[in-house]
Design a protein around this nucleic acid. Structure first.
Lengths: 336, 336
DNA sequence: TTGAAAGCGCTAACAT
DNA sequence: ATGTTAGCGCTTTCAA
């Protein structure tokens, strides 16, 4: 099995009868190069199967085309939408996303941040506004733009694009109370892992107390991710322990849908016997029967804003500003 | 705002009173270095906020820790599961995934392959076994292991980990025919974009013809991705044009669920009046009411096998072998 | 177990 | 519009 060494820029230069610099300029679409020279070089390169070496380019120019991104889970349509929005925005400038997931674990996030920073990204976009102390230090020391998303951090590291998770749930509680519900429950994950879920739970408690209502109907659905299965189990627990509950707010649409299916299995009418609300405006919330009242977290927009912010910062455009989004409450058929 | 240059390996070496080589060895956990020296070096590095530069390491050693991966869409739990399985397997060896998505477009895939190869990944894992001619050439020329997944390629480039999409749907048709259904429809995306979806459609046609049944109940749900919304629209079309249909096989669980919700909105009993089957064994298929008969594509296992294969190949372990998985048919409540 | 020298493949800086 | 020189921060190679 013969295999000659793959061609490098100098090889293309020799064949094309120019210097490496000219080849380099051709590949970077430098303006100060004649179109004919450029086309000839690119043709030679294609014929020889030349592949530009981004590794060498990155080292020499001391910049990469990477933007590092951390999300809790790959398998979550909300975060996927955010990454999609980010990716689309950055792709216009030829930037690549370096994606890692934390499994809703701040320790894992810390490790991940360390791994990602070794690749010298130009910016880092994080999901959430809480991190380990060492994680924070790594981010600050890195010297690159840091953007926290899906949250309004109490103590921002750099920029942020997000919304108040507590505030969004408070609005849902307000809405339910206005609609006449009093005995309202909350289904969420165990505390202290998913910080956004935790904030939503706190928002629920605060809002219930503000209305002078009992905030004791808290169903812990286990460690995140809280998905459909966990929502269904939590609903079983809720129906058993607090059968007079009038409405339930879930930490996400996925758990809300799981809760809904449990009602369907038991012949409990939604919303007549119990109302259900979700969070996130996942596709399923708009199409299931009955459709789910929810909060539109505007996942894709978060990514797009974050992407635009990164580009502005890399362009040196100042002042580039953090974005606080206003989640939208969507009234649907699962509540009155 | 003062900002001194971040420390490099030579700085750590100087402070620690050793050479760069020793620092390099400390970071790579080279065995031939005394534990005390190593600990001292790592301590100095942490104190100085040193971040290892993977870019320089990659260039000099002419190898990266990247495995490139292409998927049609980020926002799809099946592919997310595959990436998750792959990621978990590779993370054990400190390898990072370089992920890109093609939007179910072979042209976009070709471009993406070009972009990814510039990063000099050690292997590339693709979703699907069909590519543009130039895409194939790029892959072959790259000289790195190529693994095609979610398919059994007609003309494999390198290795593959997957199953026959046509064969899986054939089994579903066989099952439905055996259960007594005759007027069976297929809901899928428009031809020629999503090649796996297209293969499933062909498998449907072939199987119906094999049973001497009409294969004309084909509902085109638009360009991929075919999700819940498209499934619901397709169901409307099906009920209008072929109201005597007894059973419908959908290209995915998401479209199957959408179709199911349309039946619920119209008061059509599933499976009594019409049976529904999906594909993929997404979480929703197991929990919706009625639960969906489907094909378990074993998404996570695909990723795990692909990851193991990559590691074997990089270790030079031969023969490392392609894997053909047998999808599992799951009989659930949406069909008899 | 540690170190010195050389160089991976590009591009910044400067020159023409 | 194009070329020359030097060097990005590591690790290979060889030596001690």
């Amino acid at each position: 099995m013969t295999s000659r060494k793959p061609p490098v820029m100098a090889d293309i230069a020799r064949i094309a009868g120019v210097s490496s610099m000219t080849v380099s300029r051709a590949f970077r679409r430098d303006s100060r190069i004649s179109p004919e020279t450029r086309d000839a070089i690119l043709k030679v390169a294609e014929e020889m199967g030349y592949v530009f070496d981004a590794t060498a380019s990155n080292l020499r120019s001391q910049k990469t085309d990477f933007v590092a991104v951390t999300i809790p889970s790959l398998n979550n349509a909300n975060f996927a939408d955010t990454v999609e929005g980010l990716s689309r925005t950055l792709a216009e400038r030829g930037m690549q996303i370096l994606l890692g997931h934390t499994n809703y674990d701040m320790q894992a996030e810390e490790q991940l941040i360390g791994q990602l920073l070794r690749r010298k990204p130009q910016a880092i976009v994080l999901t959430g506004g809480k991190h380990t102390e060492r994680g924070r230090r790594l981010l600050v020391n890195s010297g690159i733009p840091v953007i926290e998303t899906w949250d309004v951090p109490a103590d921002p590291i750099g920029y942020h694009v997000g919304f108040s998770n507590a505030g969004a749930v408070q609005r849902m509680v307000d809405h339910f109370v206005e609609a006449g519900y009093r005995r309202i429950a909350f289904i969420g994950g165990d505390a202290s892992r998913d910080t956004r879920g935790e904030d939503r739970r706190l928002g629920f408690i605060r809002a219930m107390e503000h209305h002078g209502l009992a905030s004791s109907r808290l169903i812990a659905a286990g460690p995140p991710p809280i998905s459909m299965r966990e929502g269904a189990s939590a609903m079983i627990k809720l129906l058993e322990t607090r059968p007079d509950t009038e409405a339930v707010i879930c930490v996400s649409d996925l758990s809300a849908f799981g809760a809904l299916t449990e009602c369907q299995r038991r012949g409990i009418a939604v919303p007549e016997q119990i109302a259900i609300a979700g969070f996130g405006n996942y596709e399923i919330a708009g199409i299931c029967v009955p459709s789910l009242t929810t909060i539109d977290a505007r996942a894709r927009e978060i990514g797009e804003h974050a992407g635009a912010l990164v580009l502005d910062l890399l362009d040196g455009k100042r002042p580039a500003a953090s974005v606080t989004l206003e989640p939208r409450l969507l009234r649907r058929a699962s509540s009155r």
